[in-house]
Each structure stands twice: as structure tokens, then as C-alpha cells.
């Protein structure tokens, strides 16, 4: 009797751990372990002796924080980060602005062909990033672009979209084209979940559709705006596909245009996985700081708004 009870209670006690085990193992194997290995690599480097030919010419040694100090002093990485900052300043507001606008328009009462429009705006998100970048790249190249052709026929000047300032617009355009649909769906879904009574009350109070949109809808979907902003920041910091695909088409995108391209170049172009690991760790830290910093700030404001609302 007693033995069977004790066994049963032991089994029950152990159950949560048993349920946790698969997730823990998977997390450890496919998340913690690779990250840990990357961090370990970032503290190593290779020393070559002599001409470096033949066996035993290369040795992996401890590098301390050497890779990190070099990465922090690397002007290429800094310039890449600045470029991405400029790119993000275009992409994030434009993309989220458009997404919000489209979501509000789809949610308005007078809209026709809503399912079709929704799908049409969402569809570019389903196009793989590399394909989208190639497609736009061909449209940007003056010699093969139908836009340049049309401008030429109209006698208008044709801007070179793959150079200087316009390059940022060209790159941002690809991201906006691809990302607006997804963000619109997120915002739209949360618009649909606002109870109809709220609108009814507003209408009875004499609010116009514009006032409803500005005073009711937008504040009520603020959490999804925060979420989409959060996603967008991460996506911007990780920009890689678009500039990498456009690189062979122009002299203006260099191999370390964005920080991630620099990581890729160091790991697979220069075969220096150690420096690449250090850079990747730094990028991950910055991403973590920026995105969670933003989330905390947003949460704090939300709480304040709620408490102020309560007082009022």
C-alpha cells in the first residue's frame, strides 16, 4: 500500500518535469547550444605560422575580447549600422503608416471588394524576399526598366535608383512593398476585434468616420501598433536579402553594406568565423537592447495611460 502511494506521488511530482523535458531538450540543443558555441567562437582566433602552407600551420588560440574590440573599432561595421539606421528611418514609418491606413480603409463601412483588396495588399508578403529584390532590381536597372523606358519616351529625366540617396529609397521600397501587407493584417485583425457597441456609442455622440478612426480605432489598436513596430525594428536590423541581391547590379552597394552582410562576408568570404561570431553577438545584443528597450517604454506609457484614464 504505502509503497504504491509513494510511487504514485513520486510520479505525479515528476510529471511536470517530464512534460518540460522535450521543450528543454530542444531548447538546449537547437537554441542554447548553438548560441553558446557562437559566443565561444567569438573569443577564439586562428594564428598562422610562417608561410601558412602545409599541415600544422594554423592553430586556434584564445583571443579574449580581441574580436570584440576590433569589431567595435571597425569603421565598416559602424558605417553599415548607420546605413541601416537611415534605411530604417524610411522603412518603418512608411510601412507602418501605410499598413495602418490600409487597415483603417478596409475596416471602414463603405469599402467594396474588401476580401480581394486585402489579399492583393497581402500578396507581396508571400513573395520570397530574394525574388522580390531581384524583381525590383530589374525594374530599377535603367537599361531594362520599363519605368525608365516610359520616362525616356516622355522626355523626362530618369533617376538612377541604384545610386546615392535614391538607393535608400529603392531598398526601402522593396521592404515596404513586401512588409506592408503583413503588418496591415495584424492591425486589421485587432480592428475587427473592437466591439461594435463602441462605434455605435461614438456615432450616437455625433462622431464622424474620421473622428472614429483617429479617436477610437487608432488608440484601441495601439498594442498591435507596438507589436508591428517591434517586428519592424528587428527586421530592419537584420536587413540582408535586398542589398545582397542588388549588390551585383550596381557599384553602390558594397560587400559590407549592412551589419549582417559584414558578418556574412567575414564568415564566408574571409573564412574568419571568429570575427564573424563576435560581430553577430554584438548585433544580437544591440537588437535585444533596442527591441526590449522599446517594449518597456511602450508598456510604461500604456500603464500610465491606463492609470490616468482611471483617475479621470
Amino acid at each position: 500500500m504505502s509503497s504504491s502511494t509513494s510511487r504514485r506521488s513520486y510520479g505525479v511530482k515528476g510529471a511536470p518535469y517530464g512534460f518540460l523535458l522535450p521543450a528543454t531538450v530542444l531548447f538546449a540543443l537547437f537554441f542554447a547550444l548553438p548560441i553558446g558555441y557562437a559566443v565561444w567562437l567569438s573569443f577564439r582566433k586562428v594564428r598562422v605560422s610562417g608561410l601558412g602552407l602545409g599541415s600544422g600551420a594554423r592553430k586556434e588560440v584564445w583571443a579574449g575580447f580581441g574580436n570584440y574590440t576590433e569589431a567595435l573599432q571597425d569603421s565598416e561595421l559602424l558605417h553599415g549600422a548607420l546605413r541601416v539606421l537611415g534605411y530604417g528611418c524610411i522603412v518603418v514609418p512608411v510601412m507602418l503608416g501605410l499598413a495602418l491606413l490600409f487597415a483603417l480603409m478596409l475596416d471602414s463601412e463603405k469599402v467594396r471588394l474588401a476580401p480581394f483588396t486585402r489579399l492583393a495588399i497581402f500578396l507581396p508578403y508571400a513573395v520570397p524576399g530574394v525574388v522580390a529584390a531581384l524583381l525590383w532590381g530589374f525594374l530599377y536597372l535603367p537599361d531594362v526598366s520599363p519605368f525608365s523606358f516610359a520616362l525616356d519616351k516622355l522626355g523626362l529625366p530618369q533617376p538612377d535608383l541604384l545610386d546615392g540617396g535614391p538607393l535608400y529609397l529603392a531598398l526601402a521600397n522593396i521592404a515596404v512593398w513586401g512588409g506592408t501587407g503583413f503588418n496591415m493584417i495584424v492591425i486589421y485583425t485587432s480592428l475587427r476585434s473592437i466591439p461594435a457597441e463602441v462605434y455605435e456609442a461614438a456615432k450616437l455622440d455625433g462622431a464622424t468616420p474620421l473622428q472614429i478612426a483617429l479617436r477610437i480605432k487608432i488608440p484601441m489598436v495601439a498594442p498591435s501598433l507596438v507589436l508591428t513596430f517591434f517586428f519592424s525594428i528587428i527586421a530592419t536590423l537584420q536587413v540582408f536579402n535586398e542589398p545582397t541581391t542588388l549588390k551585383p547590379l550596381t557599384n553602390s552597394v558594397d560587400t559590407a553594406w549592412s551589419p549582417l552582410m559584414k558578418v556574412y562576408q567575414d564568415a564566408f568570404g574571409r573564412n574568419d568565423i571568429y570575427a564573424a561570431a563576435a560581430e553577430a553577438t554584438l548585433i544580437a545584443l544591440v537588437t535585444l537592447l533596442l527591441s526590449f528597450g522599446f517594449l518597456r517604454a511602450a508598456n510604461r506609457r500604456n500603464k500610465r495611460d491606463v492609470s490616468q484614464g482611471g483617475v479621470r
Binding site: 557599384n251 558594397d254 568570404g269
Partner: peptide, 20 residues
């Protein structure tokens, strides 16, 4: 030499900018 890849990448970036 043992780091042709580095020289080649540097060529692309430096000469790309110079050509531009």
C-alpha cells in the same frame, strides 16, 4: 596567395566606389 578572397572583396568595394 593565401587570402585572394580578401583582396578580391576589397577590389569590389574600393574599385566599385572609384568607378562610381
Amino acid at each position: 596567395g593565401p587570402n585572394v578572397n580578401v583582396a578580391y572583396t576589397s577590389f569590389k568595394d574600393a574599385f566599385g566606389a572609384a568607378a562610381k
